[in-house]
Design a protein around this nucleic acid. Structure first.
Lengths: 347, 347
DNA sequence: CAGTCGGCTGCAAACGTGTGCATCACTTGA
DNA sequence: TCAAGTGATGCACACGTTTGCAGCCGACTG
């Protein structure tokens, strides 16, 4: 927090009064002309607009929002923008925001509570009109802001949903169930689950979906087949190692997400096994790269871009006073690729 | 550009005058107390600060920047945040920005000129203190803003550098030369280059580096070994297909970036060849996933996060009035992994 | 010809903050 | 006792907009 000192101001841009002086009218008239207000003479208005264009006049958003009490900005908090899923979501948010004249503030929290507090303060000072929180573990932390300033908050795939906020979530249970069912249909019975120890809500739900499919097929649950990584490739490698060390190895693994599947894939290949020959592998997300992996990954597609769009559309609806649905659950779609196949025949 | 109408304002937050009323002092005193100005009584100041904290007072950034003529915001333009390289850069920018009390506006241009104009206008209205443009083809487009308002602009890996702006670029020539030399050292002589038809500056430079290494080793240049994709996996697949169709296939391929390498890898495997057995493959970027590919990818590491940090640090230096170096060229680092090996012995 | 009305324009206040300058109370020194 | 000085505070203006209201001018009506 240093360095906010001794900073020199840039050149001053043209103000509405400058334009007024040039047009020989009051600044009120200029304001009205630029807003196409009907109460200003058509010819004068056109003359003013031309002058404004000529001098590259841009109204100050700060001054405007001071009087209108609306900033036309929203804040987006993410754990890290380097996560490809998060980046996809942010892309969707930004697209809709821009189309409606909103600018978006992006802030990384790095899952650091102290940093999250700073982000909230920053958004508060900026008087953002709304907030989207993606994949955070502490979305609830943002609720105080909401209660004080009535700023609508949309939680996207939050790990700790609050009933006081709006939300957009993937149907984790259904997705995990579908992908597990797909493996069962192929003939697998020794199916493991590689979760994310940090993914509270979604990990629980995906595990539930996995178990649901097992139950449905009357396959007994084996607790040794449940291991946990960190939702990234690194943690998945260790976790996958544990599965490979089991006396009776699984013939298929359901991974928490595609990045975990990538790590697991790396581990499996490193140990000299083949996919899907020795082990079938599935992910969750359908990241852009997943279709090009070797082998291409079977997974549950999470429409990240659309989810981002939906979050922003919800925000705009709320701000427009439209009564919006509180909670959206979007379905995942099973994408079958070459990383899954029937298990090898028992010798 | 619809929907900026009929939007209801949120609850009004506490203002400096509210705090002043509660503390029974003028708003000037409150302002000074919160800035730790020495000319206010220590006890009064503490009392005011407590009151402010108790009522969750946050000064309005808009009002402040109106009088100080500084917004403590910067604008970041990217073609698409879904590009993992771009996301890494933005992460670095945001980290430094946050540490210095700056907030960042993120805008996607989608490489659409019309959209770029809108972004410039938006940043102009918001009175951003600085701009970072990443991997754009039209960075020059932002210069008019600079000339009118003296807003410093830092171009990061821009495809059309302007001598009027600051810049941070990867040393593409050196990187491509190093990675090509690595292949030559392994014994390859039939080396192809798979470029990016849209990457003006960087494609030219990487191609130059490739040729430089060939010349150094006295390997004749073969124009049939030059093909172009689109910098993404999709385009690389088609381009790689052309190389595989050649009567005398190359034994190694230098790709424009890791995403292209991913596509090429997919194509090669799809055609039944092995890596690095039949063909050695190298990329450029060292994306996070690259180390986990099958096989792990040899590439040039581009320190994206650090480049983002450097860009933001440069911006802050300029804003602080420190005379900063105009152009930074950062070196790439050769990372050797399993996608490269000596060529198979000729039969 | 006086009065009214409609179309256009300007005045002034407000939004929330920072800051130069005047002011006030009180202490100190001669 | 009075002048000067010191420390703390308030006044008032500025920043660049938006907007309710008053006012002006010309034309039309009775």
């Amino acid at each position: 927090m240093s360095g906010r000192n001794e900073i020199k101001p840039p050149a001053k841009p043209a103000s509405i009064k400058d334009i007024a002086r040039l047009a020989k009218v009051s600044h009120s008239t200029v304001s009205r002309a630029l807003h196409n207000h009907p109460l200003v003479n058509a010819k004068t208005a056109e003359r003013i607009r031309q002058l404004a264009r000529k001098h590259g006049y841009r109204p100050s958003a700060a001054a405007r929002s001071l009087v209108t009490q609306r900033s036309f900005t929203i804040g987006v908090v993410v754990t890290t923008i380097s996560d490809p899923f998060v980046a996809g979501v942010v892309g969707g948010i930004e697209e809709i925001a821009a189309a409606h004249g909103f600018s978006v503030f992006l802030a990384n929290s790095n899952a650091d509570p102290e940093q999250e507090v700073r982000v909230v303060q920053s958004f508060d000072e900026r008087r953002v009109d709304g907030i989207v929180v993606t994949s955070s573990r502490v979305g609830a932390l943002y609720v105080p802001v909401l209660s004080r300033r009535q700023v609508p908050i949309v939680l996207l795939n939050n790990q700790h949903p609050s009933q006081f906020a709006y939300s957009v979530v993937i149907n984790s249970t259904q997705g995990a169930s579908d992908v597990t069912a797909h493996l069962i249909e192929l003939g697998h019975r020794r199916i493991a689950f590689l979760g994310d120890e940090f993914g509270r809500q979604s990990d629980t739900e995906r595990l539930a979906g996995y178990r649901e499919a097992l139950t449905q097929a009357e396959i007994p649950f084996n607790r040794h087949y449940i291991v946990h990584g960190d939702g990234k490739a690194e943690g998945a490698i260790t976790a996958m190692g544990k599965l490979l060390a089991l006396p009776q190895r699984p013939t298929a693994v359901v991974c928490y997400n595609d990045m975990s599947a990538l790590g697991a894939m790396h581990c499996i290949h490193g140990a000299g096994f083949t996919i899907p020959g020795d082990i079938s592998l599935v992910g969750f997300d359908d990241l852009h790269m997943s279709q090009y992996l070797n082998p291409p990954l079977t997974t549950i597609r999470q429409p990240m871009h659309e989810m981002g769009r939906l979050a922003m559309q919800t925000l705009i609806a709320i701000l427009s006073g439209v009564i919006s649905q509180q909670n959206f659950t979007v379905p995942g779609q099973l994408i079958v690729r070459a990383s899954t196949a029937p298990p090898r025949k028992e010798p």
